[in-house]
Amino acid sequence: MASGTIIVHGLTLSYFTGKLEAWLRARGIPYRFEEMDTHAFRRAGRATGVLQMPQVEMPDGSWFTDTTAIMADFEKRFPGPALSPRDPAARFASLLLEDHGDEWLWRPALHYRWSFAEDMTLMSAQIARTMLRDVKLPFWLRRQVILRRQRRVYLAEDGVTKETAPQIEALYLETLDAMEAVLARRPFLMGERPVQADFGFFGSMFRHFSSDPTPAAIMRARAPHVLLWVARLWAAQPGDIEKAALPASVPDDLVPIFARIASDYLPYLAANEAVLAQGDKHVRYSQSGVHWDVPVSPYRAHCLSALRKEYASLDQGARSKIDALLGEGAELLCGPAIPNVEDTPEPRPASRPADRHWRRAAGRKRT
């Protein structure tokens, strides 16, 4: 590796790789992107102990993973425009929006990619040409391998059924509508300057919803200002960002998104945490009359634990503002964290490449 070069290992169609690249560009942090193949994927996994993407290889040989953790660490480590509000309530709101965007839009992003014929045909071919380029099989067979694997893992094993699909699609449409109303008024979600919230929503909106044929057609027709925001955030430069003020409060027009967080996402996180504590492997719950059965996620228990720690650190004035946004949902931020949940990796078979994130792995040397 060239001296002083940060390398981002990932895929050009990867949800979280796109998120991290946009953040590094906005901060003005130089890096080199390297498209993973299966050999590179295993090498990164040996360095961090986690098979996922993106993975960041530092000039000193240490490695980082988990986009949220990388953003938090690099904001302190490297000079550049701040991308986190200084106001405590606005900062917590931005972190909550980032987490919601990261995690709750994951399922619709994967549903649109792997449930629709045009999308699955295109994306399976792209992965066969990139991630599986070092696998010694005919192209058609590589494409079939990835197609069957993705549909099994991200649809059948993640609760996507004929009954749940309308609710998954409604989440995308309602999110588009809420964002369109906001972004028709201002350039970024919370104001004139991007913050964590923007990057949390960007991963799905950039590499999935604005790129894959079916959701992209919906976005162009239904939410043109969201499409503009995707390009604006990808093009954001430090000099332009520094000219704008950080948001000092939480805009009122974000209330529909916070209502969705309070009614759907936080209850799911609490249910997932409870099931994890009981040692079960599946979270079973109902949402608006639709029954869900999804695998338990230690990473999302970590997400809830992290949000609770941030919430507990707020002063009374800031907490009151967040409580007003979330209503009864705020009560779910008051519970205790599961001991050592931050150190519990999400179990993932070594044969399964994952566009997910888990934890920082600084200090682990290259193999």
Rank of each mutant, 00 (worst) to 15 (best):
R364I: 12
R366L: 14
A197F: 07
T65W: 11
R46S: 14
L266D: 04
K76H: 12
A259N: 13
G61W: 13
A40S: 11
F92S: 05
G18W: 05
R142D: 03
T68K: 13
F258I: 01
H302K: 14
Y154F: 15
T130W: 02
P138N: 02
L155Y: 13
G10E: 08
A223I: 04
K309L: 15
M36Q: 14
P353N: 02
D280Y: 06
P224S: 03
E273H: 09
T5F: 12
E75I: 02
P166H: 08
E346D: 04
T48K: 00
L325K: 08
S286N: 11
V160N: 14
L189Y: 08
I261C: 00
R284V: 07
A306D: 15
P247R: 06
F209D: 06
R352M: 15
Y31M: 04
L333K: 11
N340G: 12
G101F: 08
A165F: 09
I257D: 09
W104T: 09
P295R: 00
G159K: 00
A262K: 02
C303H: 14
M131A: 11
L332I: 01
T67P: 06
L304H: 10
R364S: 13
W63Y: 11
A248H: 01
R143W: 00
R25A: 15
S305Q: 12
I218F: 10
V290A: 07
G45E: 06
F92P: 03
R77F: 09
Y15W: 14
N340I: 07
A89Q: 01
A223T: 05
D240C: 01
A178W: 00
A245V: 00
K162F: 15
M179E: 04
A271W: 07
Y112Q: 08
A82I: 03
P79H: 10
R142I: 02
V275Q: 05
W63N: 07
A2S: 14
T214L: 12
R149E: 15
D252Q: 10
R129S: 10
F64W: 15
H208G: 04
H39P: 07
G10N: 10
S297C: 09
A40M: 11
A165R: 11
R25K: 15
D253N: 07
R113H: 10
F116V: 03
A69R: 10
Q126R: 15
E34D: 05
R152P: 06
Q55V: 13
R356A: 10
L304T: 07
R185F: 08
P256C: 02
R113V: 09
L332T: 01
G191Y: 03
A47C: 10
A89C: 01
A318D: 04
H302I: 12
T68F: 06
L325V: 09
